[in-house]
Design a binder for these strands. Sequence first.
DNA 1: AGTTAAGCGAGACGGTACGTCGTGTCTTGTG
DNA 2: CACAAGACACGACGTACCGTCTCGCTTAACT
Lengths: 198, 198, 198, 198
Amino acid sequence: MSTISPTAVDHTAETPRRGRPRDIRCDEAILQATLELLAEAGAGSLSIDGVAARAGVGKATIYRRWNSKEALLLEALSSDTSIIATPDTGTLRGDLESYFGALLEKVHSSAGSDVLPHLIEAAHYDAEVRQSLDQYLSSRQKPLRVLLQRAQQRGEIAATIDLKVMSDAVVGPIIYRRLLSKDRLDKTFVRKLLDIIL
Amino acid sequence: MSTISPTAVDHTAETPRRGRPRDIRCDEAILQATLELLAEAGAGSLSIDGVAARAGVGKATIYRRWNSKEALLLEALSSDTSIIATPDTGTLRGDLESYFGALLEKVHSSAGSDVLPHLIEAAHYDAEVRQSLDQYLSSRQKPLRVLLQRAQQRGEIAATIDLKVMSDAVVGPIIYRRLLSKDRLDKTFVRKLLDIIL
Amino acid sequence: MSTISPTAVDHTAETPRRGRPRDIRCDEAILQATLELLAEAGAGSLSIDGVAARAGVGKATIYRRWNSKEALLLEALSSDTSIIATPDTGTLRGDLESYFGALLEKVHSSAGSDVLPHLIEAAHYDAEVRQSLDQYLSSRQKPLRVLLQRAQQRGEIAATIDLKVMSDAVVGPIIYRRLLSKDRLDKTFVRKLLDIIL
Amino acid sequence: MSTISPTAVDHTAETPRRGRPRDIRCDEAILQATLELLAEAGAGSLSIDGVAARAGVGKATIYRRWNSKEALLLEALSSDTSIIATPDTGTLRGDLESYFGALLEKVHSSAGSDVLPHLIEAAHYDAEVRQSLDQYLSSRQKPLRVLLQRAQQRGEIAATIDLKVMSDAVVGPIIYRRLLSKDRLDKTFVRKLLDIIL
DNA sequence: AGTTAAGCGAGACGGTACGTCGTGTCTTGTG
DNA sequence: CACAAGACACGACGTACCGTCTCGCTTAACT
């Protein structure tokens, strides 16, 4: 958690601490309210005032924990920690189909609201957000990195290939469809995409 | 112009119209101011008030032309009409390297300010913006579609390949690097990417 | 009005003016709301938010006209222009009893809320408020100055007496009772006071 | 102290009490900090947070002793116990000139910050503050009451005169000048005032 | 030539959200 | 118990933009 969101004002590691400790129930209530409002109205129309009201919490209690709406968003997203398992079907293609199958399901289940563009824009102006976003995405793509490495060791991917580029080559089109294209993002697309890349 | 931005309230084709005609210099001043402020501060902190002040124009004069900040942004972007030529080197790889070379140059020259994420988010909530954005992107990718078709006719791309997917497969990773990755987006990346896809 | 409240951002004297003119109904609604809330809760608990809500007006519309709560208070008070008549009974004592009789009535009718202390404090830190307050008080005491002058011309007050001091000598005790003393401020007090001074 | 500020939660006279005793140094530090901040910024902008920080004390430690900012103010003022001596020159006029001379000196030396208006306003809404303020003022005016009584016994003041009114008649104008008038409050004013009243 | 309809700069308007500050209460650990 | 530190719910602050709305004017096209 703390590794994902360095933007948050973090006290976890400090010595015994003085004064009244943060109330963990506030954290939960705020993140919960954030996710709810996000699902209802999207990142654009999410307001700190609204989150505070919904969570039954003062605004200061939010700002004490996160410097910006984006830092809050990032932690709210990260708190949804249902991680994608690392598939191991024996073949690269099988692994990728399994991984992206799970990813698509996740994408479609998550309330339509698209937070990503908002974060991308924020990241462009705020280095901390940028870093947090990187870590968030990186953690999500860990299974992908693992299965690519395995494939390269098995010889399914030429040793000369830069795995970072390979990763972008498969993730990029998926994200692109999701964010920008009017065309459908489904299993068929994934299959056709793999036909091209592999 | 009007095909790119149907969001704009368009009067160009109408009958002579009564009353005082629109002042074209206003359009120019507004778009110019928009581009300047965009370069200075980014889409997020761009305000209609600010554009009006910079352009020396009343706010109503802006709203008379565009319904929303995003419609204005789209037209401002579109007004930068330096189009990418359709390369014809004889080979698919040559064409793609040439096309993306030109694209990278464009990307790097344009003031860092990233408007795309903002538009993506807006498109999520406003169908008109979505459509305009589609048209904008589609027009930018026309050369790509052409060169891919030629390659398929030449047999460099299997007839079974869905060109739309192929297009996304090459464009997606580029956009992804640009928007989300902390890794560099340069000619080396393009070369490695083509090594994988082709 | 404008002479009483130089704190207010005043445009009245300007040339034809550009842009949309101020809406006088806003001024009225705001001052009315201020007086109402003042009567209900007092100067201490009067908030700009509250006035705006009650008046059905945006906060900016208030701040556009007055720089501070105190400037607003002063103008609200001044707008209650029921002026005390200048009595002329023929004798100094008669004039003073008449004047203070009217004053007491005014004081007791006005909803208990005491704005004066609030303004006094504010005046201590804000020169503009101080000046406005001076003008407000001065205008209220004009009848008193007149009747004292007449009495001096008639010889009821020695020519050597400084009328300013004389004025303070009669007004001071009244204000003092009103603000600070727990003892009653009534006609008996006024009579006893005049017994001492005259 | 306790007679001046019944608002304060007073434990001084109680039985030995269990647990850790109050730290007298806290009282001193708080009152000291209050006086300092009062001199620096005035009663209006004095905050409990600020006092606590300056005194190096927790806010609870303040609230344990005083119920309100005003109770604290009153005690801080009272702690400045340099009392005005009761003059005895033999004549009423001499006594009054002496008394007010000392008073003026006190007024001018005390850091300009005017706490009185703030207390007056608070007293209007809080009966306890009102009572404490009465006691504070009453104790300050004790010498005045004494010298007036003496004068009445000597026959310098008619037996029919209400001394309370007489007191207000001399104190009122002084306070009025101090609080509200833009005119100077000096020995000349006192002399002219006594010329009128006596 | 006069009328009329729209465009234009300016800026007021009712709102909403911002991020900060102060209030008085509370909850820790330490004396 | 008292104390320092500081978290907490609440509510007001003054500012910034939003998108709409008057103003007085200018500028054609239509009587």
